[in-house]
């Protein structure tokens, strides 16, 4: 056996097909566009922008993080009974859960924000009478309220979908071993469901981060609100560029965290080298 036989065969010459030419043309176009934007920004760069509006953008970032954190947490808690409803055999309970999910997934977050902020605002005397007006009076709390309801519908779908995904045989096996139902759920069903649910949960957080920009139209000075304010003062697109960078950083952090979580949850599925 000679050494040459182990070498891979030479790659066939790649032909310039129309698709390949088109691909190069498009790539060149995008590169030029990217360069153009970079040069355009560099030419009109105003170094005083960051010193004037940087602190305000960061305070906006803080508001955005606060908003997303509480919305996801409250939404997550709300999603538990809703997911239970989606899986329930009780017709009333399951149709209520279905209606909830149907409404919040089927209408735009923007419309929900207007409905719950300005729409509910018309009932301010009634809400004041029952002591709930404070939630809706302040744009920030109203935003948490709206986003929590919205994300609870999505999180309930993720959770119920993932639980449904675990094969019935797993439950049956647990029953055969006479494991208590709570142990079956917590130690057997839920860990397997979490593997399926993890990525959709990550997506939901990312969608929530980006969706939170809607808070800026109900007077909340979140990252988007501060950006729009800075832009309205300077008419400098640098404002939106920095906002885009900050949103990208948030999403990137989530992405990396999620890779770590997935590695941890699926560690039993990784083939070890000494196998």
């Amino acid at each position: 056996m000679t050494m040459t036989s182990t070498l891979p065969p030479p790659a066939p010459p790649r032909r310039w097909t129309p698709a390949r030419i088109a691909g190069h043309v498009f790539l060149a176009f995008w590169i030029l566009l990217g360069l153009g934007i970079t040069l355009g920004m560099a030419a009109g760069w105003d170094s005083s922008f960051l010193s004037t509006y940087g602190p305000r953008l960061l305070s906006g970032l803080g508001i955005t993080l606060w908003l997303v954190f509480w919305s996801l947490l409250i939404g997550g808690l709300l999603s538990l009974p809703i997911a239970a409803g989606r899986l329930s055999n009780n017709r009333i309970f399951s149709s209520l859960a279905f209606a909830w999910v149907y409404f919040f997934r089927g209408t735009p977050l923007l419309a929900q924000a207007f409905l719950f902020y300005y729409g509910i605002g018309t009932f301010s005397p009634e809400l004041e009478a029952i002591g709930l007006w404070w939630i809706f009076e302040e744009g920030l709390y109203a935003a948490v309220f709206i986003f929590s309801l919205n994300t609870s519908a999505y999180q309930a779908e993720i959770l119920s979908g993932a639980l449904r995904n675990v094969p019935r045989s797993q439950r049956e096996a647990c029953a055969a071993l006479s494991l208590p139902r709570s142990i079956t759920f917590l130690k057997v069903i839920l860990p397997q469901a979490m593997i399926v649910a993890l990525r959709p949960y990550g997506n939901e957080i990312i969608l929530m981060i980006k969706g939170s920009a809607i808070a800026s139209i109900i007077t909340v000075l979140d990252l988007m609100g501060e950006t729009r304010r800075a832009f309205s003062r300077t008419f400098d697109f640098e404002a939106y560029l920095w906002a885009a960078v900050l949103y990208l950083v948030m999403v990137e952090v989530i992405r990396r965290l999620w890779d770590m979580f997935e590695g941890r949850l699926t560690r039993h599925l990784v083939r070890r080298s000494d196998d």
Binding site: G121, T122, E128
Partner: peptide
């Protein structure tokens, strides 16, 4: 964003 919205919020007491 527009004059319509601050009018709504003056009416509802915000």
């Amino acid at each position: 964003p527009t004059a319509e919205e601050y009018k709504l919020d003056l009416v509802n007491g915000r």
